[in-house]
Design a protein around this nucleic acid. Structure first.
Lengths: 161, 161
DNA sequence: CGTTGATATGTTATATTATATCACATACGA
DNA sequence: TCGTATGTGATATAATATAACATATCAACG
């Protein structure tokens, strides 16, 4: 597999996942909350995906790891995470994202291949100037910015041509 | 209503909707396809929203305009639009977007209030440099970029404080 | 220790909502 | 008058979420 394709398929997020997990652990310790294995694993899954996931997406990933989890397992973990500010629910999507409050300066950008649906992730150093300007003009307070680019990934570009 | 809030609620897209509708009409004329009122209206709704909409989102907006439309009305129009390249289905979301091929240089940006869920739209002149760079490095061909900023809109910011 | 009570988990079944299609009657235009 | 588009009611399919109850874990207390 070429470097390009490998890059497209999986961006290494170990660092930021790990630091976020530590931050979460600290928050729980401070508030006498238990970040149990199930909750930990769901949070990790959210952090790894680095985008909004449906409850059943999470369930599927959990189930790939051995025992087949049931829906309530995921919903309970999500209740805990959302209830304690470690994750958010995006109502419009019925999906959940890990809270990245601990590193607000992180602006993920996704490149989504419209052929194979794979998603590559990268990040950009700061909110685009024009958007920032518009937000300030209108009084909107930006907490997180997500950029989605739709297009064709390198491998699909080759084969489909 | 203050200018700020008005700005937040509705950004005027008449120009780009209109030009896209003309382009669609031209395409249909050239291929002897009929852009009937129903199809026209669904395409307009997609263009106005300028983001992916579920079939029932479209249905709701159609129904607000007089006679209450039924699901097949929307699905038929969408079949036509997708079948003829005037719109795309985002399988991952079960949602539909108008094809904006005719104005590739348009990069919408959305500011979504996480309290009231209202969405303001603006646009930025070009794809953020860092993302563009990364795409080029990996061989990804960007067709459209959508930026979503989550945060708090001016009116929620006042009341919730 | 051992018991108890609070919290977390395992598991089956099912409720709720969103998404999509069927089937048939009617209209309209080439 | 045939092909295509629309109106409309009913229903199928899939995604999302919860109810209910049994079991497990673990810390606090006597």
């Amino acid at each position: 597999m070429s470097d390009q394709i490998k890059t497209f398929r999986q961006h290494n997020h170990d660092n930021c996942v790990e630091s976020a997990m530590h931050a979460a652990q600290d928050i729980c310790d401070a508030q006498h909350l238990k970040l149990t294995p199930a909750r930990q694993r769901v949070l990790e899954i959210l952090l790894e995906s680095h985008t909004a996931l449906g409850a059943y997406d999470i369930l599927e990933r959990l189930s790939n790891e051995g025992g087949k989890a049931q829906p309530p397992v995921v919903y309970r973990a999500l209740d805990f995470l959302v209830g304690n500010g470690l994750a958010h629910k995006i109502e419009q999507l019925n999906a959940f994202v890990a809270c990245v409050h601990s590193h607000k300066d992180h602006n993920p950008a996704f490149m989504i291949c419209k052929k194979c649906k794979r998603v590559a992730e990268t990040e950009i150093p700061n909110v685009p100037t024009a958007l920032n300007q518009h937000a300030m003009d209108s009084g909107f307070v930006i907490e997180q910015t997500i950029i989605e680019a739709r297009g064709i990934c390198p491998s699909c570009n080759e084969t489909a041509k």
